[in-house]
Amino acid sequence: MEQVVELTDLDAAQEVLSAAYGAMRIDGGRERSWMRMASQVLGPIRFDEVIGRIGLAVTSEPQLSYIFGHLDGGRVHYRANGDEHLVSPGEVFLTAKPGLPYSAAIDDPCAMLVVLDQPAIDAVVGRVHFSGCGAVSHLAAASWRSTCVHLRDHVLPVFEDEPLVVANATRLLVATTLATFPHSAPEEKASDRRDAHPLTVRRAIAFIENNAADDITAADIAHAARVSIRAIQLAFRRHLDTTPMAYLRRVRLSCADADLRAANGSVTAIAARWGYARPSVFAAHYRAAYGVSPSKILRSD
């Protein structure tokens, strides 16, 4: 559900922005200013759209989450971790890392902001550290924005009550964010290579097959196998030539096949139940695995 706040008072703007992004102080602004903020939540992700005819000087205390953004209009000039950043329309940005303060001068913003917690990122790939506040390329920036808009406008309104679709959407956004912003990935350790043995794979497979209907992450699978995320990835690649999440998708596709043969809902409903927002993608994956369309299986049974 979308929550919309419209403000013409700077004190109220400070209160709303502090609640959304962490305690901050607004040091100045223009008279007869106004700001509109619309928020939507998809699992651990929050999408904010901020539009205003307002000039602000903001000082933020250390924030709790990552705040990524795309500037459609206006100007943002901010200082984070000792570095100065000037954001122009059409650019993406990362304001600051969790635990670090920042200051900013904001003029007439029209921006899409994405608030993402560190645990949501760690659950997908392990601990990463973002080393830059801008995109690696214009193409990456455009891809990040289009992914965010798709998830916000097309996935969220339809599938917010489907946990596996939300989980897959989160992983898609995390992957796209990692492809867009410079970061350092966890280093491979000798213990990871040592732990990537068949017993690790067997533990992981048992966990996956027993919990395929739940929202489980790479971190959950690694924890069940008693190894690191890197070790579980190495183990699956070494012994099965796949990844833990690809194996999970295969198991869920098998569960969807069972639902189709039991006529347990429409193709669209079954696809969403097992994590597919797009029935066409589900149909393509199903056809590749079973050599027939899901609709034909449903009709035949």
Results as ranks from 00 to 15, higher is better:
Thr268Met: 11
Cys133Arg: 13
Arg238Gly: 01
Asp195Cys: 13
Ile229Lys: 00
Leu199Asn: 13
Gly28His: 05
Val16Ser: 00
His285Asp: 03
Asp11His: 14
Glu91Asp: 10
Asn168Pro: 01
Tyr276Asp: 07
Leu56Tyr: 02
Val50Ala: 11
Asp214His: 08
Phe93Val: 08
Leu172Gly: 04
Ser228Phe: 00
Gly134Tyr: 13
Thr177Pro: 02
Ala256Ser: 02
Val87Cys: 14
Thr217Ser: 15
Phe130Cys: 10
Pro294Asn: 06
His239Trp: 15
Gly43Val: 05
Ala263Arg: 15
Thr243Pro: 00
Arg249Asn: 04
Ala235Asn: 05
Leu253Tyr: 00
Val5Thr: 11
Ser293Asn: 04
Asp83Gly: 06
Leu86Val: 08
Leu94Tyr: 03
Gln3Asp: 14
Leu94Ala: 02
Asp122Met: 08
Gln3Pro: 03
Val125Pro: 00
Ala179Gly: 09
Pro89Glu: 05
Phe130Asn: 10
Ala289Pro: 03
Ala235Lys: 01
Tyr78Gly: 10
Asn210Lys: 14
Ala288Ser: 11
Asp301Ala: 15
His223Gln: 13
Glu187Ala: 15
Phe47Asp: 02
Met1His: 05
Ala256His: 01
Arg30Val: 12
Gln118Ala: 15
Val227Pro: 00
Ser88Ala: 15
Lys97Tyr: 03
Pro98Val: 01
Thr176Ile: 11
Tyr290Glu: 01
Asp107Lys: 13
Val267Arg: 11
Leu10Met: 12
His138Met: 14
Arg75Asp: 00
Ala204Arg: 04
Thr59Met: 03
Phe93Arg: 06
